[in-house]
Nucleic acid binder design. Structure first.
Length: 504
RNA sequence: GGCCUGUUCGUCUAGUGGUUAGGACAGUAGGUUUUCAACCUACCAACAGGAGUUCAAUUCUCCUACAGGCUGCCA
């Protein structure tokens, strides 16, 4: 016999309400960000409501500070919520720790209806029983010891102050059916579900219970969450049914795994959104990449603006296979966005990144004292826009414009065993560059430097190499002539002079 | 152990009962080039295995293998 399997059809007249429900045990990571994003996309697309709920019922693992971290990351991603912390509404509060009386009230109702019961078994006792079964190779299920207690026993126990949890009484041998948007029809027999605890002995609810109560009370119409919750769904449906709540639509998203196919964790490198912000990834690139993990539009398109995603996104085109996180592809997408970004926009981002960088390194004494940072960055952008994949890479590439250089040992001796007379080249470069008019245009700089190459009958490559190291303290730089122009005559000559001093 | 789920190039994916199985990232080679990129061209590379249904299966069914999830007074 089927338990009341009223899977709701999408109802067009009814407002769609989705939620993202993180537990504050850490920063917002890639996987949760994708879940949040898909919820947000669906809500935005359907002009529904995106609700944020904090599931902080585990006092042991809960970390208050991480709530703010999560909110901050969500805001940075632009995933603003219609209801939740900081945005109150009739369905609040949106922190489960503030809803304990609600959970308690509903659990009392269940007890009264004999759909739940007190359990006085101690965690230690249960642990022992479980262990024994596993050793025997048998499946473990709570033996319903406390279900057999008489009402007098229960009363006595409670009166004597014995701690108790509340267990849900799982109906016997019933089939639970539900349709998941991604995984299709799922059928589970209640025999494989034990009488799970809904209220802990500390009075706080457990996940499978509170999530069902809240989703129902908050009138959530579509539950979109990670695949790790697929096997929890039957338990939640049991709760819905016990109260005759409407069952929402379920969409489980395939997991995001690390490159080694294991669950994403710290050992896979940066997994928090915050880390990616630090590394200079841009909002739209991250969202674009996240969208591609478990979802696709067609065989050709990989680049989507956020507004394009809102138009094209469909729950039904989400696929089942867990996806491995590919840092390289994210990097490529980020580079793509940087290359195609408005210069003014890139300027703002780079300036912010640069200021953070300078502050973090405690650098006050800049090479560039006259020109405002922003103005200089504006000039630099065309030189680097096509050669960086992250903002951080950008800063690395252009820092010698701002920061005094001190030649590394490696570069100080770079030409020692090479057949080039670096000193001679620099001498000539110095001379010819000092002759360039005070306007110091890249074109003139190029002309004069090429002249050196001709005079010495040397490949221009060599000339460029020597000059580059002298002015940039690196074998890599933005295009040389323009770089020299922006650096300015004074600094260029000063650095060439300095480097000559070092190698001679 | 029990229950649930998944498996197309290295990675993300498209796709169909009959296709040279498509694209993107990465990789390789070449072009361009003052470095690094970007850009252009080409190349490499996949239907987990076995049975069944069928004229025909990567596509449908079953089994196996492998992987993941749940089985907590975690979420």
């Amino acid at each position: 016999m089927n338990i009341n399997m009223n899977i709701k059809k999408e109802n067009n007249n009814k407002e769609i309400r989705v939620r993202f429900a993180p537990s504050p045990t850490g920063y917002l990571h890639i996987g949760s960000a994708r879940t949040a994003f898909f919820n947000w996309l669906y809500a935005t697309k359907t002009r529904g409501k995106f609700i944020l709920r904090i599931e902080d019922t585990d006092i042991a693992r809960h970390q208050e500070e991480t709530i703010n971290l999560i909110l901050k990351s969500l805001k940075w991603l632009g995933l603003n919520w219609d209801e939740g912390p900081e945005v109150s509404s009739e369905y609040g509060p949106y922190r489960q720790s503030l809803r304990t009386s609600i959970y308690k009230r509903y659990s009392q109702e269940l007890i009264q209806a004999k759909k739940a019961y007190h359990c006085f078994c101690s965690p230690e006792e249960l642990k022992k029983k479980r262990k024994n079964k596993i050793v025997e190779g048998k499946p473990y299920k709570y033996d319903r010891k406390c279900l057999k207690l008489s009402s007098k026993d229960i009363k006595d126990n409670i009166d004597s102050g014995k701690p108790y949890a509340i267990r849900f009484l799982v109906p016997e041998n019933k089939t639970i059916n539900f349709k998941d948007t991604v995984y299709g029809n799922i059928t589970v027999n209640t025999e494989s579900i034990e009488d799970f605890i809904i209220i802990r002995s500390n009075g706080l609810p457990t996940y499978n219970y509170s999530v069902a109560i809240d989703d129902a009370l908050m009138k959530i119409t579509h539950v979109i969450r990670g695949e790790d919750h697929l096997s929890n769904t039957p338990k939640q449906i049991l709760i819905y049914n016990a109260f005759n709540f409407n069952i929402p639509n379920f969409t489980h998203l395939p997991m995001i795994l690390g490159q080694d196919g294991q669950k994403l964790s710290k050992r896979h490198g940066s997994i928090s959104i915050e880390k990616y912000i630090e590394e200079g990834f841009v909002r739209e690139a991250i969202l674009n990449y996240l969208a591609l993990l478990g979802w696709s539009y067609n065989e050709k398109t990989t680049i989507f603006t956020t507004s394009g995603l809102i138009k094209k996104f469909k729950l039904s085109s989400i696929n089942k296979k867990p996806a491995k996180f590919d840092y390289n592809k994210l990097l490529w997408i980020n580079g793509y966005y940087i290359r195609n970004m408005e210069n003014s926009c890139l300027k703002q981002l780079l300036e912010k990144q640069l200021r953070n960088y300078l502050a973090s390194k405690n650098i006050i004494d800049l090479e560039n004292r006259i020109e405002p940072l922003g103005q200089k960055i504006e000039k630099i952008i065309p030189l680097i826009k096509e050669r960086i994949k992250t903002l951080k890479e950008g800063i690395d590439l252009i820092s010698p414009f701002f920061i005094k250089i001190s030649y590394s040992d490696e570069l100080a001796t770079y030409f020692k065993n090479k057949e080039i007379d670096a000193a001679d080249i620099l001498n000539r470069a110095y001379k010819t560059l000092s002759e360039v008019s005070s306007k110091f245009h890249a074109k003139d700089i190029e002309k004069n430097l090429r002249l050196v190459s001709e005079r010495l009958n040397l490949n221009f490559r060599k000339i460029a190499e020597v000059v580059r190291i002298a002015i940039w303290n690196s074998t890599i730089s933005p295009p040389l002539f323009e770089t020299i122009e922006i650096l300015g005559k004074g600094l260029t000559l000063k650095r060439i002079n300095e480097y000559m001093g070092i190698i001679s």
